[in-house]
Design a protein around this nucleic acid. Structure first.
Length: 778
DNA sequence: GAGTTTGAAACT
DNA sequence: CAGTTTCAAACTC
């Protein structure tokens, strides 16, 4: 199953990934040296969760830094997710219920620009492993994901995934990887569609993109010239794993979305990202991944190639990576062989990166890839706001309770029945968020450790992804909607449903159209072909509406903005530029906020779901999920949530005296009035715009040019002398008023009157000058 | 801007 | 689940 269907993919905007990826890595590698994780085929390394049922995405951490990049892939699915809870050792991931993953812990090293993904053991293997009483083993069998990023020079970025994959729907064991059909994925980083693939894998598996259906996932590269320019990554994947020829010339891509490449061609370079064995996320609570707008963002999103098993969810992976200008090609290889994960950056230039703070990966001039990683010792709460910035901050936080201290080798592991990867893209931000039922996370079952296996203590460790919640559209029922601010909030009664809370402040809100890519392990059937990557309306509002309308600031006074009364909180956003008092809806009160979220979810698991969703079949596309209860407003005022959402009341509404139905004359009248008002507003806006333009033009023409070699405008009558003369006139008038002992009001009137006279003279002079100038054709 | 109205959310 | 209270937004003046 693919996370993103071609159809949906075609709907993707050209720029959907305008983000900077900054990741907080628990243990960052300071020198960016290549780190290779070991193949670890035999070693089972349980992640945070290791219940057989639980499927967890593999986590990738930066070499020493747990760069919360998660790369997972199923047989035919490759997903890269930035996550915090990374088990470093072997990039363990837990597969469950047919969810097969490929976890590829990776490190960015300066050597190769290669990211090597390790294949996660199949669910069967996991089951077997668990049944054997051993921690679940993640086999890192050799799929390599080769990602080449287009550098500043414009070299197309190619992501190649020659990996052996089994047919969709067939669970594959870890040992089956060799039998898998190699798949080829092309990832382009950069803006152009010039993608010409392809790079042979290390295993000599060169695949031909021709005759393969490629799916492009993501895109986003912004101006390479700017250091802060975000980078687009387009990832195409081959749908058809068959017919891969070992040696193939690469045909240009493809059906997928092609990126535009702004930069000149550069030789492709590979960066191998490897997850250090020693790194465990849990060891560092409260980690965050921040995407810094100041840094050149680049994000790689890997889309699952195919669905191995019907029940196996695909994971899309978003790998936020800061790519500096002139970045080179980031290559992620997924080899069929169980090669150790490597992190190598090509042309390691400046890697003067403090450990855990930033990781710079290869650069032509300086760091090509830079990952900024918050220090592990930093408080896990650090609010990041970039008002007006189009770049989004993404932070992965391990929300920890008292006991969630990182214990890399802690015996207990949390069981996550179904990790639900989600890719949420809000224009600039796209992420893959494994949603893990918090309830299951609380259930920690100690497991015996193998000598090589690293057990991650996930006890009460919550990984939180902070994302803009506002644009979050309604998520598929299986996924549940993303609640505000926190990941892994328990959803009572929701079974395996978990929540990913996405505070908005880390991300510029409403800057980009909401975008969601979702994949559900349980809900997505391969046969159904349910791949979701589409813009979904938010609360009944179209994308354009949501993007164009900034959120209103709240005015809460008593709720501390921690109840659903607060729109900010209800929308999963932090308060920002609000008028609230005693606000706790911020990172300074994260504990309270999380508690409040949990409370809300306890009360109503769907509390943070959009209220306006799709109605039943045959009904209107949009309707209120609960219906309104209006009694006095006739459902024709904004008190009514239905009316406010510009939808009509439905059968589930319990309103009295409803007039908000199709044939309602009152409603029609209101609609007409509203339309007329809107037209007036538009006209006024247009008039203002025009007037502003005229004024601006007038100022341009009339303002004396400070001679800077740029030439002088023809009508530079407001000169310094004119200004001085005007001021003298005004002063003289003031003196006159003072001498005549005029009251202050009268004095002001006289001065203003004089000022008016001065203006009139200036304008008159300007008019004459214009005429004169025109007469002489100046 | 103050006061009122309204209905969702929260509480009992 | 129903009734009541609390709350903040919508609305009116």
């Amino acid at each position: 199953m693919d996370v993103v269907s071609p159809e949906l993919n075609s709907l993707l905007p050209d720029e959907i990934m305008d983000t900077e990826a900054i990741e907080d890595i628990p243990h960052s590698q300071s020198d960016g040296t290549t780190v290779q994780s070991e193949p670890d085929e035999d070693t089972s390394v349980p992640m945070e969760t290791d219940t057989p049922v639980a499927s967890e995405s593999g986590f990738c951490s930066d070499a020493t830094s747990a760069a919360q990049s998660l790369i997972t892939s199923t047989d035919s699915t490759l997903s890269i997710t930035t996550t915090k809870t990374t088990d470093s050792v072997t990039g363990t991931s837990i597969t469950t219920s047919g969810l097969q993953k490929l976890s590829a812990p990776f490190t960015i090293s300066a050597a190769n620009h290669q990211i090597i993904l390790n294949k996660v053991a199949s669910s069967q293997a996991t089951e077997a492993a668990k049944s054997a009483g051993s921690p679940q083993v993640i086999k890192q069998e050799g799929q390599k994901l080769l990602v080449t990023a287009i550098g500043k020079s414009g070299q197309p970025i190619v992501l190649q995934l020659p990996h052996t994959g089994s047919k969709a729907g067939v669970a594959q064991t870890s040992g089956d990887t060799k039998s898998q059909t190699p798949q080829f994925k092309v990832v382009t980083i950069g803006g152009r569609s010039e993608l010409k693939p392809v790079v042979g894998s290390s295993t000599n598996q060169v695949t031909t993109l021709q005759a393969q259906q490629l799916k492009t996932v993501q895109i986003a590269k912004k101006t390479p010239a700017s250091s802060a320019a975000p980078i687009k990554f387009i990832i195409t994947k081959t749908v058809n794993s068959k017919g891969l020829s070992p040696q193939s010339s690469v045909s240009p891509v493809i059906a997928g979305r092609v990126l535009t490449q702004n930069s000149p061609v550069m030789p492709a370079r590979t960066i191998t990202l490897t997850e250090p064995h020693n790194t465990s996320i849990q060891s560092i609570p409260g980690k965050k991944i921040a995407i810094s707008p100041l840094k050149t963002p680049s994000k790689v999103t890997v889309v699952s190639v195919a669905s191995p098993t019907p029940s196996a969810p695909q994971k899309s992976v978003t790998l936020p990576v800061n790519v500096a200008l002139g970045q080179q090609i980031l290559t992620v290889q997924q080899s069929t062989s169980a090669s150790p994960v490597k992190v190598a950056t090509s042309q390691t230039t400046a890697q003067n990166i403090k450990p855990v703070q930033s990781v710079t990966v290869g650069g032509v001039s300086g760091s090509q890839f830079k990952t900024i990683i918050p220090l592990a010792t930093q408080p896990n709460v650090q609010q990041i706001q970039v008002p007006g910035s189009r770049f989004h901050y993404v932070r992965l936080v391990t929300a920890t309770t008292a006991s969630s201290t990182g214990q890399p080798s802690g015996p207990s592991t949390s069981s996550i029945p179904t990790a639900k990867p989600m890719v949420v893209s809000t224009g600039a931000v796209r992420m893959s968020v494994p949603i893990v039922p918090a309830q299951t996370m609380k259930q920690v079952a100690p497991k015996p450790l193998t000598s090589t296996a690293q057990v991650v203590t996930a006890t009460q460790t919550q990984q939180r992804l902070i994302m803009p919640a506002t644009p979050l559209p309604q998520i598929q029922p299986n996924f549940t909607n993303l609640p505000p601010g926190t990941v892994l909030a328990p959803a009572p009664g929701a079974g395996n449903v978990g929540y990913a809370v996405v505070p908005a402040q880390y991300v510029t809100q409403l800057q980009q159209p909401p975008f969601v890519t979702l994949a559900s392990s349980s809900g997505f059937q391969a046969s159904a072909g349910i791949q979701t990557q589409a813009r979904l309306p938010l609360n009944g509002l179209s994308t354009a509406e949501t993007t164009s309308r900034p959120r209103k600031p709240c005015n809460c006074t008593k709720s501390q903005c921690l109840k659903l009364y607060c729109d900010c909180f209800a929308n999963g956003e932090f308060c920002n530029n609000c008028n609230c008092n005693n606000c706790f809806n911020n990172l300074e009160h994260e504990t309270e906020r999380l508690k409040a979220i949990k409370t809300c979810l306890d009360r109503n698991p769907e509390a943070f779901k959009p209220k306006i969703g799709k109605g039943k079949e045959g009904e209107s596309d949009r309707r209120h999920s609960k219906g309104c209860n209006c009694k006095r407003s006739g459902c024709l005022k904004n008190y009514c949530e239905c009316y406010e959402a510009k939808i009509m009341c439905s059968s589930i509404c319990k309103c009295i005296g409803c007039k908000n139905f199709e044939e309602s004359p009152e409603r029609k009248t209101l609609m007409h009035l509203a339309d007329a008002a809107e037209v007036r507003v538009q006209q006024q806006t247009a008039a203002k715009t025009k007037l502003s333009s005229q004024i601006s033009d007038l100022l341009m023409r009339t303002t004396p040019v400070i001679s800077s070699g740029g030439g002088r405008l023809p009508y530079t009558f407001v000169t310094k002398e004119v200004l001085e003369a005007t001021c003298e006139c005004l002063l003289e008038q003031a003196k006159r008023a003072e001498q005549t002992h005029q009251p202050q009001a009268e004095a002001e009137r006289m001065i203003l009157e004089e000022f008016g006279h001065c203006l009139m003279r200036i304008i008159s002079s300007a008019g004459k000058a214009k005429v004169d100038c025109a007469s002489i054709n100046c």
